[in-house]
Write a protein that binds this DNA or RNA. Structure first.
Length: 104
DNA sequence: ATTATGACGGTTC
DNA sequence: AGAACCGCCATAA
């Protein structure tokens, strides 16, 4: 496993992200909020480090924008999962209110 | 303990 | 709407 035992934060983030169903998305802030923290950035760090084995594209920024620097990689995933998109085809952003997923 | 960094968030200009 | 600034959190050096 990429995450050694003891890192609850990492384990939690991975678990939450992995629990997001296809076609749904959560913001970094939401994931952090589930952990009782506000480390949206910290979540991004984990995605950058351990997200390689996770559906990282289901984690977006507030406002419905996909992960910075990974828009092109995420787009095909959204189209494949039927995630509601907006502002196509010029640019695109996730229909956050519609695709938002609650951890519970 | 202190500093710097990052797949962020929100406010302000 | 785009850029700048500050705040928050976890990790690495």
């Amino acid at each position: 496993m990429a995450a050694p035992s003891g890192d609850e934060f990492v384990e939690h983030v991975c678990s939450i992200v992995a629990s997001i169903p296809p076609g749904r998305v959560m913001t970094y802030g939401d994931v952090a909020a589930v952990l009782g923290s506000r480390g949206a950035r910290a979540v991004g760090q984990i995605m950058a480090r351990y997200g390689t084995d996770l559906p990282w594209w289901r984690v977006i920024r507030s406002g419905g924008h996909p992960p910075a620097g990974h828009e092109d990689r995420a787009l095909p995933h959204y189209r494949d999962e039927g995630t509601p998109l907006r502002d196509l085809p010029e640019s695109y952003r996730i229909d956050y209110p519609a695709a938002r997923w609650s951890h519970g």
